[in-house]
């Protein structure tokens, strides 16, 4: 488990990093917290020829409120996002979601950008950024572009990031998505990746009528996706047990889980229904008061 040989470049600025990323002749990879990339390299499943270490690029880290957005730099440690007062105030879901990632030590090193760019369908942050309608800011020597989270994740470990590009920031529009959240996931052990999970956001009136809703199941599709059918079933209806059951069933029916050693597709389907039910029940707690 020793990585194949690679060249190492410790970037001193974003421009410096992008200049190295722009090399088309060689496979270049960014190194963020290394919590996913380093094991993959050790197993030689990932074999970059050049590694651009972003850990010295301070400008890529930080949480800032900017007009209608909360902007989180790609290199912000998951633990710093989890403990940020701005995140607590504006994006409580993000805090809940990160609380499920591994263990504190891993979150101290792992970054928001690394998790999102890695795009594991069982990971919390990809599902959360889809639920929150975030925008991914990508940069290259050719300029900057913004990709909505819903268009960012293609399939298992595949995203819209093109060769030469870096994810520099995740930008969350405030007020654009419902405020209340609920999340549930089932793991084999504390801190493991989810076997199945669900994130829900909703605005709920005093009589429990749902005005807006976003539902994102986890670990049951090649990439995180909103469940349009589930959202339709919610909007305009009171969040009672019957509706919750219907929504949970719709999520299960609409997803495409696969078998693996931690559970069959059929079991995962049942689990995601249960997780959706729990997420909605959590969301309902205290609603309508």
């Amino acid at each position: 488990m020793k990585a194949a040989a690679f060249r190492y470049h410790r970037a001193t600025s974003l421009d410096d990093a992008l200049a190295v990323m722009a090399d088309d002749d060689e496979e270049v990879r960014a190194l963020a917290g290394g919590q996913s990339l380093v094991p993959l390299m050790a197993m030689r499943l990932s074999r970059p020829e050049v590694l651009v270490d972003l850990n010295g690029v301070d400008a890529l880290a930080g949480v800032a409120l900017d007009g209608g957005h909360l902007r989180i730099g790609a290199m912000t440690r998951q633990r710093d996002v989890e403990r940020s007062p701005l995140v607590a105030e504006h994006l409580p879901l993000l805090r809940t979601a990160i609380g499920h990632i591994g263990h504190v030590t891993i979150r101290h090193r792992g970054t928001i950008g690394g998790s999102v760019a890695h795009a594991d369908p069982a990971a919390e942050l990809p599902a959360a950024v889809v639920a929150l309608g975030a925008e991914m800011v990508l940069a290259s020597t050719g300029g900057t572009r913004v990709v909505p989270a819903e268009e960012f994740f293609d399939s298992y470990l595949v995203t819209a990031v093109e060769p030469g590009e870096l994810l520099v920031e995740v930008r969350f529009p405030l007020g654009a998505v419902p405020a209340r959240h609920g999340m549930a996931e089932f793991t084999r052990r504390a801190g493991d990746f989810a076997v199945a999970g669900a994130i829900v956001l909703a605005d709920v009136a005093a009589d429990l009528t749902v005005r807006r809703a976003r539902v994102v199941p986890m670990a049951v599709d090649p990439a995180p996706r909103r469940s349009a059918r589930a959202e339709e079933l919610l909007v305009g209806r009171a969040l009672d047990d019957g509706v919750i059951r219907e929504v949970a069933a719709a999520v299960a029916a609409g997803c495409g889980p696969v078998d693996d050693i931690h559970g069959s597709a059929a079991y995962r389907r049942d689990l995601v229904a249960e997780m959706t039910r729990r997420a909605l029940a959590r969301l309902r707690q205290g609603a309508g008061e």
Partner: peptide, 10 residues
């Protein structure tokens, strides 16, 4: 990730 040892949490 696949061969699951009990940890302090289990």
């Amino acid at each position: 990730m696949d061969y699951l040892l009990p940890t302090a949490m289990e």
